[in-house]
Amino acid sequence: MAVKFFGQFLIEKGAVTRTDLLKAIDLQERTNLKFGETVVEMGLMTAVEIARVHQGQRSEDLHFGEMAVKLGILTEAQVQEILTRQRNSHLYIGEALVKVGALSEHELESYLKEFKDDQLAYIAEKIEIPAGVQHKPIWEMVADLTYKMLTRVAGMSIRTGPCTVIDKLPKRPIIAEMGFSGSVSARYMLSVSENTRSLVAKAILDEESVENETVEVLDDSVKEFVNIVCGNIAAKAAQLGHSIDITPPEMRDCEKSGLDVPENHTGLMFPIYLSDGEVFELSIFIPTE
């Protein structure tokens, strides 16, 4: 058992084939438009205005519609109209599998119930920080912003697992780290596989392929992603009344074994799952006061 996407669950169950799933995903991608795409389809914004909104989102934690309103490009009423249109036309993967003939309506209903029961333990509806950890709202915000930036900046589809207190960070080939100091201190770490590093590098370098890039450039892209996330965390912390300074990102060497949480520190780990089943982690080492 592990955190998984519905399509992955169905393949593992033998309910659909990989080809079925690819057909359904293709149908979903053609049907489900992103907020920006819906806006273009409705003729409400130009490409230049969309770029302005994306740029704004990188330095302020707002949804596309909220940022467009803030910049005076859309009205609140237009945002609601777009959201309604998106909601009404959204095609879920299960529905797409029915449409491509891979599942019947009855099978879908039955598998959905089974899937929900299977995943109950892994779904973090809300980010819950374990009891006894100080500055809980800050760590909830740190995890929330990391998830949002993985989606918005790195373009990843992720699911998240519950936060746990750890003594040791699992072995990973790549760990990018930044330090927080000021009214809240901590070490922020994103530990990823080579595959996830490539996904991040493609987004940061704005390249279709990073196959020919050196390890130095790939690692640097992960560091830069962490830098962008932590910059946003510092901004959000300021809104919560905390002053956080960040140090430049660094790579941690953890090839041989995991990384021990230092003495007098609490280690929090937030697992993050990709649709292919790969897992990577956000971890925070917090000094105990």
């Binding site: 990188r58 302020e60 910059g231 946003n232 510092a234 901004a235 959000k236 300021a238 960040i246």
Partner: peptide
Amino acid sequence: VTSLGGVGD
């Protein structure tokens, strides 16, 4: 150039 675009100070 900065990632701290949202930090006013």
